[in-house]
């Protein structure tokens, strides 16, 4: 189903400045500021954040905890409005930090949730999801409840659910942060592999610099709160990338230095 023309329900357009949809799959966040009022004080999440992502580019956004990374993704997905600046993006689907699989649905029905959300009948959603489950190494687990799946499998189902939303932009919010180290490494390699055959515009938010260098075409480093982009690192390395490669290690050190972490 085309992603165009289905996004009316999702966007809460600001009155003064309508959110513009980009049809080509790109993302343009221009000098965006966002402040939250809490009970005690106003918290500046973002201040002058700029991020441009070309169609089919994979950009990793790294930054310290609480630097407004999740806010950035929600702006891209149209779940929030900027206080100032502009956030334009093609229709984007979110992959949340926790897998948030519905415990009463099987793996295949969780994968097809985005289709069901648009009113696609269950049988049709299953037909659409089935070949993907096989591609993602989940054959035989179609009728398994999320509680019976391993952490890596749950994340793959969660990613598939986002992919099947059919949006040109994928907003991934620390997708592998909750996994153990070995599974995380496997999943990072797996994601790079999937995106090669299934190219999408990807904004991957992470605090794991190594993950950023392994997966992304470009790494954007954010400052502590209020967040803004302070450095950009091109990752012009062939895939699959190995953690131990000198080039990968060098880029990792460069990103860590930009974050202000002594390596």
């Amino acid at each position: 189903m085309p992603a165009k023309g289905v996004s009316t329900g999702m966007i809460e357009a600001p009155v003064q400045e309508p959110r513009e949809l980009k049809d080509d799959g790109s993302v343009r966040v221009e000098l965006v500021s966002r402040t939250f009022a809490t009970r005690r004080a106003a918290v500046d999440a973002l201040a002058g954040m700029t991020l441009h992502v070309s169609p089919r580019e994979v950009v990793a956004v790294v930054g310290p905890s609480g630097c407004g990374k999740t806010t950035l993704l929600e702006l891209i997905c149209g779940l929030q409005k900027p206080d100032s600046g502009r956030a334009q993006a093609a229709p984007a689907a979110l992959m949340p930090q926790r897998d948030l699989l519905l415990p009463w649905l099987t793996a295949i029905d969780n994968a097809g949730l985005a289709l069901r959300a648009r009113g696609v009948p269950r049988a049709e959603a299953r037909r659409a999801a089935a070949p993907w489950l096989e591609r993602f190494g989940l054959q035989g687990f179609e009728r398994t409840a999320p509680a019976e799946l391993s952490g890596g499998m749950r994340q793959r189902v969660s990613f598939l659910r986002t992919l099947l939303a059919g949006k040109p932009v994928l907003a991934l919010d620390e997708p592998f942060a909750a996994l153990d180290a070995i599974t995380r490494h496997e999943m990072q390699g797996w994601l790079g592999h999937v995106l090669e055959s299934e190219p999408r515009t990807v904004v991957l938010v992470t605090h794991d610099v190594e993950e950023a260098v392994i997966v992304a075409d470009r790494v954007v480093v954010m400052s502590p709160r209020p967040g803004r982009a302070v450095a950009e690192i091109e990752v012009a390395l062939p895939r699959p990338r190995r953690r131990t490669d000198a080039a990968v290690v060098a880029l990792r050190e460069q990103a860590l230095a930009a974050l202000g972490v002594d390596a």
Partner: peptide, 12 residues
């Protein structure tokens, strides 16, 4: 977060 997810899926 689940409700946000459903919104990005254009769910009514």
């Amino acid at each position: 977060d689940l409700l946000k997810l459903m919104r990005t899926f254009d769910a009514s």
